[in-house]
Amino acid sequence: MGSATVTDTTVDRAVLFEFLLRMGDSTLVLGHRLSEWCGHAPALEEDIALANTALDFIGQTQLWLSLASEVEGKGRSADDLAYLRDARDFRNLLLTERPNGDFGKTLMRQFLFDAWHHLCLGALLGSSDARVAAIAEKASKEVAYHIERSRDLVVRLGDGTAESHARMQEALDDLWPYTGEMFVNEASDVALVAAGVAPPASLKAEWDALVAETLSEATLKKPAEGHMHKGGKRGIHTEHLGYVLAELQFLQRAYPGAPW
């Protein structure tokens, strides 16, 4: 915890809090999206695999939001942050709140996110904040498996039947405008990058390479760079997040403080 104390003095607490919310909210919302598949996936094995991934994300959320709670220091627990904030206060990437669509679309969303997540956590292993590095260390093992699995399935379905190929291409075209946000640096990022807490925006080149290689193997056509949606990092969300939160937060909103 020695280096943590140093970090608290060099990086604005509010800025660090925002960064931790981004990490934790993205894993929370995507974890919830994946949990919607429970009992509905096309095969039992895929059903369990998706549920496992969802649980990995919920576990990571617990780590990120617990640290966010500690950094904020206002007595809001990780659970309070997850269950009692409104959409405007969420900092997840818009990509993570996109509806599941069909199985192929869920996998494409997963791959595009995993490719970023994997690189991001790899960079965070070297964070100057020991607490951030420790979470990245634990999460990166889980995410190494996520990317292996989603990449494999994107290739199999892209380079599969005419039907699966068409669905994967459609999913890619539909989700592509939500990928740019991962590499947009908000003003608050600059301080974090400067302090070595957050990864630099240069993840984009590596992400582009990983995605291009996978899409080519999957015989899918990378969409042209066009308009990119953004706003998730600032709390400007699509209409879908409200529905996610209505379901996710229902119990705590209806029965405040209800314990498990």
Binding site: E45, I48, A49, Y145, D152
Partner: peptide, 13 residues
């Protein structure tokens, strides 16, 4: 390959 991945997901949770 997918059998190994599925086995990991189904039987080593």
């Amino acid at each position: 390959e997918m059998a190994i991945n599925n086995a990991r997901d189904v039987y080593t949770r």
